[in-house]
Design a protein around this nucleic acid. Sequence first.
DNA 1: CATGAATGAGGTTTCATTCAT
DNA 2: GATGAATGAAACCTCATTCAT
Lengths: 214, 214, 214, 214
Amino acid sequence: MKTKDKIIHCALKLFNEQGERQITTNHIAADLGISPGNLYYHFSNKQEIIRSIFQLYVEQLEASFRPHADQRLTLEHLTSYLDASFELMWRFRFMYANLLELLARDPQLEEQYQALQQELANWSRDILLQLRDSRFITGDDATMMELADSVKFIIGAWIAYQSAQLKGGEITKARLYQGVLKILFTLRPYFTEESQHTYQGLYQHYVKFAERNK
Amino acid sequence: MKTKDKIIHCALKLFNEQGERQITTNHIAADLGISPGNLYYHFSNKQEIIRSIFQLYVEQLEASFRPHADQRLTLEHLTSYLDASFELMWRFRFMYANLLELLARDPQLEEQYQALQQELANWSRDILLQLRDSRFITGDDATMMELADSVKFIIGAWIAYQSAQLKGGEITKARLYQGVLKILFTLRPYFTEESQHTYQGLYQHYVKFAERNK
Amino acid sequence: MKTKDKIIHCALKLFNEQGERQITTNHIAADLGISPGNLYYHFSNKQEIIRSIFQLYVEQLEASFRPHADQRLTLEHLTSYLDASFELMWRFRFMYANLLELLARDPQLEEQYQALQQELANWSRDILLQLRDSRFITGDDATMMELADSVKFIIGAWIAYQSAQLKGGEITKARLYQGVLKILFTLRPYFTEESQHTYQGLYQHYVKFAERNK
Amino acid sequence: MKTKDKIIHCALKLFNEQGERQITTNHIAADLGISPGNLYYHFSNKQEIIRSIFQLYVEQLEASFRPHADQRLTLEHLTSYLDASFELMWRFRFMYANLLELLARDPQLEEQYQALQQELANWSRDILLQLRDSRFITGDDATMMELADSVKFIIGAWIAYQSAQLKGGEITKARLYQGVLKILFTLRPYFTEESQHTYQGLYQHYVKFAERNK
DNA sequence: CATGAATGAGGTTTCATTCAT
DNA sequence: GATGAATGAAACCTCATTCAT
């Protein structure tokens, strides 16, 4: 790994652990065992490091969400998407802890973030429509749109919400995956009669998962 | 208004406008036209100002949510509760923009926040059970619990989520009230046959409201 | 007691306990339950409080050292003088902890202090000459002068020296009275043959005293 | 000389001249012509500078007092020790002007200081016992112990005592070396018959020295 | 006599960033 | 690529002192 990448990953680690505000560029350099001058050789300022982290986030997000081509969507696909997105949020959780501050400080980042949100909205909508096509769920178009927005909302807001509930802010994997349960619960009323069984299976799977990770 | 209160309100205003991080104690003093020493006469440090703002938030929240005594709960009550809580969040929106940072920095605040969240959880649960008693909605106990948690989640996360979607972070009242719509949408599948009509009325009311404030 | 005197005594207490540097005028006012404004009504600045404390010290010192008129000096007189002076130093110990700083900051105080030191020198010399007249001790004039200076030196330096040896700076009475023993030890070689017995009695008295107060 | 050392020496100089309390970190930086930030690059706070000065003092002290190995102790050795220790005290005189304050503020420093005092006590005792072995002085063990303590006391307290006697606190070398005379005077009664001559020689040497430097 | 809010200069410290090597 | 000393603006906070009441 190149120094530039090391800086990005080290910064991400420290930001997640202690918050972006408490971590100075000197902390990052010290943690890596490099000089502050060297850090500034690779990045012209702290904000650029944050932008690079965001870039990494976008890349990983898009890789996860790239649709499985022509395959028919199964519920397993859905949950694997959900798993991936929650994992991702976990890896970049400092961003969610400070999102508004970060965006307010950096219009360029704000623009990128909002473009990404649009992509996520489309993706969320497509998934739901596919689920309807496959008769897992049912509902009119407007309902599907609103439901897609709910899903996107839960994904985007879950980490910050949960972290704030927990002493020391240290969220666990179990708490993280309750976000998936929350999405399933929100979709439940729209599951068709014949997929109730599938729903139950999925739900129990995550309940067990959460219990194992308590 | 006493200087102490002026400081609290001025700080709240500036924090909402520019973020807590960018506003220094000197900014607050300058905005009020008082000396930094005077500010420190009333508050022993910046954190204490933040705590006082939080105190104000708690007081206003509890005033809004104090149940309407023995009256039967109508949907109008529900929405007036929702209106109040979204308004409140709007008035204290900087807290939601930085919640995790604020809590991480101040264990005392964290404790108070988490106690408040517990109250909100109870309140949310009670409302839903009353709605079920009044046959507006239906569902087993577990469902009611989960639904109550969803409502609390939406209330707690909506501002930060919406602000992040908007250029300049400047959320509008219309966007704010879409949070109420989101709650209604989440409850919809559980509305009884006979209250569908009530639901539609409410929903349309907020849709119109949102449109007016676009 | 008038407010003015209360301020002096309170300041003395706090200075002794925590050091003059750490005690602000507001601390003094708060400890007395009066307003800072009131404190400044009685004293025009902090330095004046210190000067008043010094004045009190001078008065008490002079009262203690006022010679017992025409009486012949006994060793009991000597030790009662020593007791008194060590007690006094104990009551005004903060001054010894900071003497140079205090004098450097306040030329007026410096002048008074140095005048007092001259008085002490005279007094010390007189005592020793009287002791020689009474054939307790023996030695030529130069020796008596030097011895008198040694006594004055021990009195003036003992508290600061001993406090620095002790964890937490909290000197005990026992340690304080070892200063008297140190003076006696310094005089010992000059005691006449016939007063050796008296010397032993005195010395043992203070040794026991010190042990009792350990 | 490295910047770090320059800071230590500059701080020592300014502290000696004006007192630690009046010298701010900005004064030190300004006097050196460096930025305050640079000072804080080398020392994390003012206290650390003080600790480093103390460290320097300890090193110089230990270098001076390291016994002249296997050689027999002569009175010349003794006085060269005394000279060295008084010189040292002179170089670090601000510490003696504020000793109690400094120790009260910094428990780590207090511990080091008290360990050093223990070393000095041992050193003082060893010298006196060697002098007795060499028949310069005479006396029982208890007397030697008490005498050793007197010597240590004079060394430790002389500067503060003398400075307080002098207008402007500006002690001269002559006054400083009277501390050596005071020690010699204190030892005099214990000098053996045969070394009286040596004593006189030494004493006169310092008297002349003092007169030259008046 | 007394109150207590207010002042403001200045102290300690932080930290993103620069620059000579 | 890399070092690490250096910068300087600015943050937070203190405290002796003032002043209207």
